[in-house]
Design a protein around this nucleic acid. Sequence first.
DNA 1: TGCAATGGATAAATCGATTTTTCGCAGTTG
DNA 2: CAACTGCGAAAAATCGATTTATCCATTGCA
Lengths: 357, 357
Amino acid sequence: MAHRETQQRRPSIHDVASRAGVSAATVSKVLAGVTTVKPENAQRVFDAVDLLGYRVDPLASDMRRAKRRIIGAIMPEFESEFFGQMVSELEALAEQRGFTLVAASSRESEAREKEILARMHDWRVAGIVLAPVRNEHGPAAGFMKANGMTGVLIDRVLADDAFDTVSADSAAASAEVARALVGKGHRHILVVGLGQQAATVRARLEGFRATALQLVPDIRIDVVLAESEVEPLRTLLSDYFSEGANRGERPTAVYSLFLKGTLVALSEFRRRGWHCPDDISLVGFDDAEWMQVTWPAIAAVVQPVREIASNAMDVLFRRIEGEGGPPRARLEPCKVLMRESVGSPGSGPHSGGGSRQ
Amino acid sequence: MAHRETQQRRPSIHDVASRAGVSAATVSKVLAGVTTVKPENAQRVFDAVDLLGYRVDPLASDMRRAKRRIIGAIMPEFESEFFGQMVSELEALAEQRGFTLVAASSRESEAREKEILARMHDWRVAGIVLAPVRNEHGPAAGFMKANGMTGVLIDRVLADDAFDTVSADSAAASAEVARALVGKGHRHILVVGLGQQAATVRARLEGFRATALQLVPDIRIDVVLAESEVEPLRTLLSDYFSEGANRGERPTAVYSLFLKGTLVALSEFRRRGWHCPDDISLVGFDDAEWMQVTWPAIAAVVQPVREIASNAMDVLFRRIEGEGGPPRARLEPCKVLMRESVGSPGSGPHSGGGSRQ
DNA sequence: TGCAATGGATAAATCGATTTTTCGCAGTTG
DNA sequence: CAACTGCGAAAAATCGATTTATCCATTGCA
């Protein structure tokens, strides 16, 4: 342990060397675990390290290597549970490999995404975990490709010809949702989504539609997709329900393809005084802690965050260590939690107390 | 713009120097904006920079300075909206000053908090934004003090004799909650919290209690505090209500001092089949996006995340630049959103449809 | 004319490690 | 006894910038 060392300059490897009566090179070798050092000298080094409280400066240590022990993580946002957990997991995984994680939020902007990436390239990070704003074909992935960076794409991504990808198996999960809703008797379902996140949303939509149509060929599936912003979706949804009301028709269930959509749907239900599941059923892609304590609890598709994070890091580190071969696209299975917000159509009063149980 | 530059070694300052026909020192000066360089040479440097697509290596650049252009941020978790927004804000603020933010989650562990801090010290970060797990007197703050690090403490903190602090004005907000609940006629209120986060929780509790007692001296305020984990709170709360039921008494409102407590309370209400606000009213410290779309919408105290982040960074950078003087404790005012989960006691049926609108 | 001052740029030191090269010394071998 | 082998450690080069010291030409002024 360090003795006093108030707020002085921290000891460098040379301080340790002179204290131990050896050269800096020897200290470096001892700390790196090289065996060609006399045990006696090694001991002196360890003693000096203890005495001075010496710790390697990771910055200086990284200077000479081409790939520094830094991993960059770029997420579209930090505010949601999903990406919050993701960053937390990634950080832990990087740390346990002796790497530092530098995380940045692209705030849903592809321009910012590229800027951040350029800055991380300046840092000569060993690898990047990129959760693109839109999909695998954005400018960020292009930048990575053009600059020979190693990285892995996650979440809003299906497969790529240059980078490994890891994401939730949206299609399979959506198929399961379709089976559940159809099984409950729903024959008119609205799907809500954000359009430009092409890859994932398309997978979720098609997975749902294909399965539903296969089970009930004449099922009616309406789709409301906003371009890229959440706000327009609110209007679109409101208009959709108003038009339906004019024609005296209304879906009995809503499947939201992403978290914000679930919030928008709930908000719209509130505005219209509709209750789940009596007036309408609701399932959302993406789970959140609050969904199980509200009344009713909201049914949701749970993405396997841990698995995505851990597989992304695994494959990333394999690439960093030089593993070759074509990029692989990995899909992790989701869990579908059918909570109280889903019921059978027309089984409850159109307002008033929710189903107890 | 860089021409091809596939995945070769990136150009260094020497490459630029030789291309421009000057020395590396001159290049460094030009890029640093030193004026003692002949305009012609400066132009040649800029041209070479453009041609090669040169960018300064921040790591190498930081090598010589004692304080590196890195800011460390340590949060208890990343999963909540509050800390997610906080990290997002801090990152933006650091970036706009040319600093890189390295964020890490202590995962509510003081031991981890100190480890992370030690690692950041290894990086010779210029400053630390620490949101301590417990309060300002934890081991992490001690470590910072002992090592002469500069930093600012935020969130679960009131004031410190070594570091500046920035946090929400918990006491004032709680007083406002008290006024609101008392105004609605509540005379028996339960306060739920997590005990060991001493500073903040005490302020919230005392701010509430003092104001409530001042308004209605014989008001009854029960308190359920868990030590540090959320899970025990669930049991404590359940026991509290069961005991109350045995004696035929029950509070008419619950004030949760932190987000998880609000979730636990809601969960307990569900279990007992109680609805807000007819059976019981609820206010929580900490707002979340979902609280305004659920039915009922949950009343909450909104913490001024942006203000806290921005003030924390301001004061931190002032200290980094060497400003002296005693540490200052800053309190940012909160906003209290009284939503539908709060009503007057005994005004609604004990179950069934919530109040519309 | 001579010497100091100054502008502008380069050489060299520095930051703190890692890695390569060199070197000294001991023990073998021819 | 010279040459060779090898071990262990020190010296030096390196990474990519910044900063300090140094140097060369002018220019200014006595």
